[in-house]
Amino acid sequence: MEWTGARYADKPTLEVRTWIDAPLERVWSLVSDIALMPGMSEELQSVEWLDGAAGPAVGARFLGRSKHEALGEWQTTSHIIECEPLRALAWAVEDPEDPSAIWRFRLRPKDGGTELSEWMQLGPGRSGLSLAIDRMPDKEQKIVFVRLREFERNVTATLGAIKKRAEH
Rank of each mutant, 00 (worst) to 15 (best):
E140A: 08
E48I: 02
R61E: 08
L30H: 10
T4D: 09
F145S: 12
E73T: 14
G112L: 03
Q75G: 15
E97W: 06
E150M: 13
S66H: 15
L14S: 02
V47K: 05
W28T: 03
D10G: 07
L50K: 01
Y8V: 00
I34M: 10
D98M: 11
R7K: 14
D21T: 05
E25N: 03
P38M: 06
S66E: 13
W74D: 08
P124H: 04
E2R: 12
V27C: 05
V47W: 05
G59A: 08
A22L: 09
D21Y: 06
M1E: 01
K139M: 15
A57H: 10
L148Q: 07
L30Y: 09
G5V: 00
R126K: 09
F62W: 11
A157H: 12
S41W: 04
V47I: 11
G123S: 02
L63S: 13
G125F: 04
Q141P: 01
L131M: 09
V47T: 14
M37W: 14
M1T: 11
D134K: 06
G64D: 02
N154D: 15
G72F: 06
G72T: 05
W119N: 07
S41N: 11
I20T: 02
A101K: 10
L50T: 08
F151S: 13
G59N: 04
V144H: 00
S29Y: 06
T114H: 04
S130G: 09
T158F: 04
W3N: 03
T13E: 15
C83P: 00
G113N: 01
T4R: 12
L131C: 00
S41M: 11
A22Y: 05
P96M: 02
I81N: 01
P96R: 01
E48F: 00
L89V: 06
R126S: 12
M136R: 15
G113A: 01
G112D: 03
R135N: 08
H68A: 14
G5H: 00
R106G: 06
V144M: 01
T4P: 04
S46C: 02
A9D: 03
G160V: 07
M37Q: 12
G112A: 11
F151C: 13
Q75D: 14
A53P: 01
E15P: 05
P99I: 02
E69A: 13
A57D: 02
V16E: 07
E69F: 13
M120K: 10
M136N: 13
D51A: 04
S32W: 02
D111M: 13
L86R: 14
V155H: 03
T77G: 03
L86K: 09
L30S: 09
D51C: 02
R26F: 00
W119M: 07
I81A: 06
L50R: 04
M40Q: 09
A161R: 14
E69C: 02
P56A: 00
M136Y: 15
E2I: 12
P23I: 00
A6I: 01
G112H: 09
W3R: 10
R87D: 12
L24I: 10
A6L: 11
A35N: 11
T76R: 14
R153W: 02
V47A: 03
A132H: 10
P23G: 01
M37F: 12
G52S: 01
H79Q: 14
T18R: 06
A9C: 05
T114S: 10
W28N: 03
R61Y: 05
R106A: 14
